[in-house]
Design a binder for these strands. Structure first.
Lengths: 201, 201
DNA sequence: CCTACTTGCCCAAACGCTTGCTCGGTCCTA
DNA sequence: TAGGACCGAGCAAGCGTTTGGGCAAGTAGG
C-alpha cells in the first residue's frame, strides 16, 4: 500500500492534521465528524484542509490503510517461527490488541461506517483485507483442531467471527468512566476466557 | 416507561411507520438515516411524518424504550425460580439474544449513536437502564464465585463488559453474506465458549 | 546586500447540496 | 361536515468543497 498516484507529499503538518482527524474519528466515527471540527482541532479554517487533502475521504483512506498494513504484518510475525497453533493464536490476539490500540480511529470507522465505506469502490481493498485476516485465523484454528489441541467440534469460522468482534471490544473502552482496566489485564482475562471459560475446575 | 406526556396516540399507521424506521435504523444507524428515507420506505413524503411524530428523535426514543423494557423484563424472569447462577446466566444469555433479535434497530442505535444519544438529557434514561442491566449480571457472577461454581479469581465487572458486548455481536450478523448460522447455533457456540473455552480435554 | 520569484500554508467568502422540520391546503372517509 | 392522513413547497442550518488571494520563509541572480 504505497502512497497514492498523485497527492500525498508526506509533510510534517499533514501528518499532524491526520492525527487530529483520527482523534475525532475515534470518538465519533467518520461520517459524524465534520471537516470543520477537524479544522478547529488543528486551529485552522475548514477550507485550508484542502491544501493538504483532496477530500475528507482521503484522510479516512490513509488511516484505514495504515491500520490494515499494521495488522497483517503482525499476523505474519505471529505465524512465523512456531508450529503450535495455541502459540500462534495467542500471538495473534496480542498483536491484534496492540494494533487496535494504535489505530483506534480505524476501529471506530470500521464499526460505525462500514456500510458507508464498503459501498464505495474506492474502498474495495477493505473487503479484501478483511478476507485475508479471516483466512489467517481460520488457518490456525483448523490446525489446532487437526492436531488435537482444540475441540474437534468447534466451527472455526464461527469462532473466528466471535473472536474478531470480541477483540474489537476492549479498544472501544479506552475512555471508560470510573475504573478502567489495563490492557494487559483485559487481554489476559480474554485469553483465559477463550481457552478455559469461566467455570471452576 | 409509559407513553410520553403529550404525543403518541397509538394508531395502526403510526406503528407501521415505526417499523419502517426501525428497519432502516437497524441497517444504517440513527444519524445516518434520513427522514426522507423513512418516508420513502413508507410511501409518503417526508413532511407527512410530522403528522405522526413531533421529531425524528421521538421515533428513536420509542424504539429504545421498548427494547430496554423488554430486556429488563427478561432478566427478572431469568432470576426468578432458580438459585443456581449458572442456570440464571444461561437464561439471561438466551433472553438477551432473543430480545436483541427482536429489536435489532435498538442495538445498532446503541452501538453507532451512543455518543449522540447519551449526550442529551432527553435520553438520560439510557444510562440508568444500562446501569441496571449491569447490576443484574454482576449479581449473578458474584453469586457464582461465592458458591464455587465460577473461578474465584474472575473480575465480575470485566467479564460482564466482555459478555455484554459479545452478546451484541451475533445480532449484527443477521444479513451476513454467504453462510449464516442459526441463532441457536450461535448461542450454543457462545455458551460453550463461555463455560468451557476452546481447549480440548 | 538587495531584489525577484517560488513555495508552503493559510484566510475569507462563498458555492451547491442535503438535512430536519414547518405550514397552508387538499383529499378521503365516516 | 368534521377530522385524520397526506401533499407540495419551502425554510434555515449545516454539510463538503472551491476559489482567489495574502503572507512569511527560502533561493537564486545581479
Amino acid at each position: 500500500m504505497t502512497t497514492a498516484k498523485k497527492a500525498a507529499p508526506p509533510s510534517e503538518r499533514r501528518a499532524d492534521l491526520i492525527r487530529h482527524a483520527a482523534d475525532l474519528f475515534a470518538e465519533k466515527g467518520f461520517r459524524a465528524t465534520t471537516v470543520r471540527e477537524i479544522a478547529d482541532a488543528a486551529g485552522i479554517l475548514s477550507g485550508s484542509l484542502y491544501h493538504h487533502f483532496d477530500s475528507k475521504e482521503s484522510i479516512g483512506d490513509e488511516i484505514l490503510r495504515e491500520f490494515l498494513d499494521d495488522v497483517l504484518a503482525g499476523y505474519r510475525e505471529a505465524a512465523a517461527g512456531t508450529q503450535d497453533p495455541r502459540v500462534a493464536i495467542e500471538r495473534m490476539v496480542r498483536s491484534s490488541t496492540a494494533a487496535l490500540s494504535r489505530h483506534r480511529a480505524a476501529l471506530t470507522m470500521l464499526q460505525n461506517d462500514w456500510a458507508y465505506f464498503s459501498a464505495q469502490k474506492r474502498f474495495a481493498y477493505l473487503r479484501a483485507a478483511m478476507r485475508e485476516i479471516e483466512l489467517n485465523w481460520i488457518a490456525q484454528l483448523e490446525r489446532g483442531k487437526q492436531d488435537g489441541h482444540f475441540r474437534a467440534d468447534l466451527d472455526a469460522r464461527l469462532i473466528y467471527r466471535l473472536l474478531r468482534d470480541i477483540l474489537w471490544i476492549p479498544t472501544s473502552w479506552k475512555q471508560a468512566r470510573g475504573k478502567s482496566w489495563k490492557t494487559d489485564e483485559i487481554v489476559d482475562g480474554l485469553l483465559r476466557l477463550l481457552f478455559d471459560g469461566i467455570t471452576a475446575r
